[in-house]
Amino acid sequence: MSKTSSAFPSFVAAGEALTDMIRQDGEHWLGKVGGSTWNVARVLASLGQSSAFAGAVSQDCFGDDLYAASAAAGLDLRFLQRVNYSPLLAMVHSTHPPQYFFVGDNSADLHFDRHQLPTGWQQAVQWIHFGGISLARQPLAQHLIELAHELKSRGVKISYDPNFRILMDEHYDATLRTMSQLADVIKVSDEDLAGLFRTTDLAGALDTLRSWNPAAAILYTRGGDGASLYAGQDHFSAAAMQVKVVDTVGAGDASIGGLIYSMLNAPARTTREHLLFSIASGAAACQHAGARPPTLPEVEQLYAQA
């Protein structure tokens, strides 16, 4: 059930919610609700955090599906805006290897208005998350950066997952640096570093990222090769957890979501413990088909085993 009480959520993810249109056999397409930042909002809600997705979706069947899925996830629907513009679609015409493009000229996501969010929510939010293609699409990107600056000045914690996509060419470089300097927590994968920095020198790219904001905690994920968490001078790496992998879709969103949850609710944990909880969250997501967020008992069971 969606959150309808007057209390505002402690966590908000701001960005894009979209529909993945996946080509099945050359003739048929399968529509799946998605979006990087929207998924992270769902992960926090699934773990038990009061959560909202701040963004705009269309008023057609695609927007209906995203609205219904947001309600089913327990998100605070006061932050989800519905506008009379076309939907944002990711056309995935090949899954092996992944090949896609976006359809969204003047689409609903670009018309998100932060000034239309509920009055007083800024006083309640403890953590806000940014990332995905929303920061590569104007004018939405500029509005989100302004929101990040505003909340940073209020002492709200900020996490950032660029989640590299083909839209993020050299024109994205300034946004990458700005958001990295604003963030308290940054999540990147090996694929993100290669794409964002346009290099095969991943160690050098990571060093550059860390130099922009030495105080930020950086979660560096490497798929089946595990992950690392850098927190100031503290650093810990861990192997991937051995689970029966059904689907890796949504694992990255679950890993950053798990890290945020751990830092919000167990701040006394060590860097190692935060990392293991994050890896457990990503592993738990892999045990289900599609981008289904893990539940807290599922994550805690894997975390205890670690």
Score class of each variant (00 low, 15 high):
Ser6Tyr: 09
Phe8Gly: 09
Ser10Gln: 02
Phe11His: 08
Thr19Met: 15
Thr19Pro: 11
Ile22Arg: 00
Gly26Val: 13
Leu30Gln: 15
Gly34Gln: 09
Gly35Pro: 01
Arg42Gly: 10
Val43Glu: 05
Ser46Asn: 04
Ser51Ala: 15
Ala52Phe: 15
Val57Trp: 14
Gln59Thr: 14
Asp60Gln: 05
Tyr67Ile: 06
Ala68Asn: 07
Ala71His: 04
Ala72Gln: 11
Gly74Thr: 12
Asp76Cys: 11
Asp76Lys: 11
Asp76Ala: 02
Leu77Phe: 13
Phe79Ser: 10
Arg82Lys: 07
Tyr85Val: 00
Pro87Cys: 01
Pro87Gly: 02
Pro87Gln: 00
Ala90Thr: 12
Val92Ala: 14
His93Gln: 07
Thr95Leu: 12
His96Gly: 00
His96Tyr: 12
Pro98Ala: 09
Phe101Gly: 11
Leu110Asp: 01
Asp113His: 10
Gln116Leu: 07
Leu117Ala: 02
Pro118Asn: 09
Thr119Tyr: 13
Thr119Met: 01
Gln123His: 15
Gln123Ile: 08
Trp127Pro: 09
Gly131Glu: 13
Gly132Arg: 09
Ser134Ile: 10
Ala136His: 09
Ala136Gly: 13
Gln138Asn: 02
Gln138Pro: 12
Gln138Trp: 08
Pro139Asn: 04
Ile145Ala: 02
Lys152Trp: 03
Asp161His: 04
Asn163Glu: 15
His171Val: 02
His171Lys: 13
Asp173Gly: 07
Leu176Val: 04
Gln181Gly: 03
Leu182Pro: 11
Val188Ala: 00
Asp190Leu: 07
Asp190Thr: 03
Glu191Thr: 12
Asp192Met: 08
Ala194Lys: 01
Phe197Ser: 01
Trp212Asp: 06
Pro214Leu: 05
Ala216Thr: 15
Ala217Thr: 02
Tyr220Asn: 07
Thr221Asp: 15
Gly226Phe: 05
Ser228Cys: 09
Leu229Asn: 03
Leu229Cys: 03
Tyr230Phe: 05
Ala231Glu: 13
Asp234Ala: 07
His235Ala: 06
Ala240His: 08
Lys244Ser: 08
Thr248Ile: 01
Gly252Trp: 01
Ala254Gly: 00
Gly257Asp: 00
Leu259Tyr: 06
Ser262Trp: 03
Ala266Ile: 02
Ala268Gln: 11
Ala268Arg: 12
Arg269Trp: 02
Thr270Trp: 12
Glu273Thr: 04
Ser278Leu: 05
Ala280Ile: 10
Ala284Thr: 01
Gln287Glu: 10
Ala291Phe: 12
Ala291Lys: 14
Glu298Trp: 10
Val299Gln: 14
Glu300Asn: 07
Ala304Met: 06
Gln305Arg: 08
Ala306Leu: 12
Ala306Ile: 09
Ala306Phe: 14
